[in-house]
């Protein structure tokens, strides 16, 4: 089965869903909803020959207030790769379990439950696999979980707070802010070692 044929069939079976070919040949994307995703995946597995569930990724879209689940499935026979995306509400996130389709989806869902707080009713084991059982914070891979803040709260070393240099550098050390700090550190070391300060726009940082 070629990609075009698959897209044609998918559109026929799931007229409400978006079926989009991706940039790379042999890749396509199906955007569907929570209620139809099990149907889409069942069809892909049983009718279209997509044997292999690679992974289920979660993405937290903080601004949209949604969590996206991406099911990566692959067909060994047709050498096609399909990405099935659904979005669930961020405040009450849940999705249907697919561990009856692919048994190894169980740990994947367990992991997403652990790190994004998405519930999968019907999954036999949603206990914490990686986090400690007594974890009471927000699910850690959500965008509003700040690991630095969490560490400060958890450990609270006195020197950490008293000398604000360390904490403030660590706080600022991300994104565009990082560049300025790295630059100043480099300049400082160049001054100490007597080298010329590095020019903008050179290779690696």
């Amino acid at each position: 089965m070629t990609r075009d044929r698959l897209i044609e069939l998918a559109k026929q079976f799931f007229p409400e869903d978006e079926v989009i070919p991706r940039k790379k040949p042999g890749e396509l994307e199906i955007r569907t909803t929570r209620d139809r995703v099990v149907g889409v995946l069942t069809w892909l597995q049983n009718e279209a020959g997509f044997d292999h569930l690679m992974y289920i990724s979660g993405v937290d879209w903080l601004e949209d207030g949604e969590i996206e689940l991406v099911y990566h499935v692959y067909s060994y026979d047709h050498k096609l790769y399909c990405m099935v995306k659904i979005r669930v509400d961020r405040d009450y996130p849940w999705a249907h379990t697919i561990h009856k389709l692919w048994a190894h989806a169980q740990p994947y869902e367990q992991e997403i439950h652990e790190f994004f707080g998405v519930y999968f009713p019907g999954n036999p084991d949603l206990s914490h696999l990686i986090l400690p059982p007594e974890w009471s914070e927000a699910p850690p891979l959500r965008k509003d979980f700040d690991p630095l803040e969490y560490s400060m709260k958890l450990y609270e070393p006195e020197w950490f707070k008293s000398t604000d240099t360390f904490a403030s550098i660590a706080n600022r050390l991300r994104g565009e802010e990082a560049e300025r700090i790295i630059r100043s550190v480099l300049n400082e070391s160049a001054r100490l070692h007597g080298d010329a300060p590095e020019k903008d726009g050179e290779g690696e940082a």
Partner: peptide
């Protein structure tokens, strides 16, 4: 699986390791 929102850092990097199906489920 990498998601970018156009910034200096990745928006999300999701790693599919080969060991999880065997190591946990099997």
């Amino acid at each position: 699986y990498i998601v970018s929102n156009g910034g200096y850092t990745p928006y999300r990097v999701s790693v599919r390791g080969p060991s999880m199906p065997a190591g946990i489920h099997l």
